[in-house]
């Protein structure tokens, strides 16, 4: 079972929730959208937290590019277009949690 955590403008509590869900046998992946892509920027203190979770991180490529962050990502991020994002949400995830 896999949940998707949608990060658009906040990042507090995401590590607590990812770790405690894993403790209940639930794998999670993260999707960064809009300003949420800043959390993958190498200049952001939250990036280290996301990286330490070891969970797969997706990000909307357009939102990364429009903010000029393409060459500044602090970790391995799976860049997706909108149709991929819909596929991840609707086909590959059991539940979506917005944080």
């Amino acid at each position: 079972m896999k949940y998707l955590i949608w990060l658009a403008n906040d990042c507090t509590s995401v590590n607590d929730i990812v770790i405690s869900l894993k403790g209940q046998g639930i794998e999670t992946e993260i999707l960064l959208v809009q300003d949420g892509v800043f959390f993958a920027d190498k200049g952001n203190t939250q990036a280290a937290i996301l990286k330490s979770l070891g969970t797969k991180i997706h990000a909307i490529k357009h939102h990364v590019e429009e903010r000029g962050l393409l060459n500044r990502l602090a970790m391995d991020v799976h860049l997706v277009d909108y149709s991929d994002a819909v596929d991840i949400m609707m086909e590959q995830s059991e539940k979506i949690i917005t944080l």
Binding site: D16, I17, I19, S20, L21, Q24, K95, I97
Partner: peptide, 17 residues
Amino acid sequence: ENADVAKTLIENEVVIT
């Protein structure tokens, strides 16, 4: 506790933030 937070997320079918 965090473990119970996770259980709450699991037990509820829909999460609206």
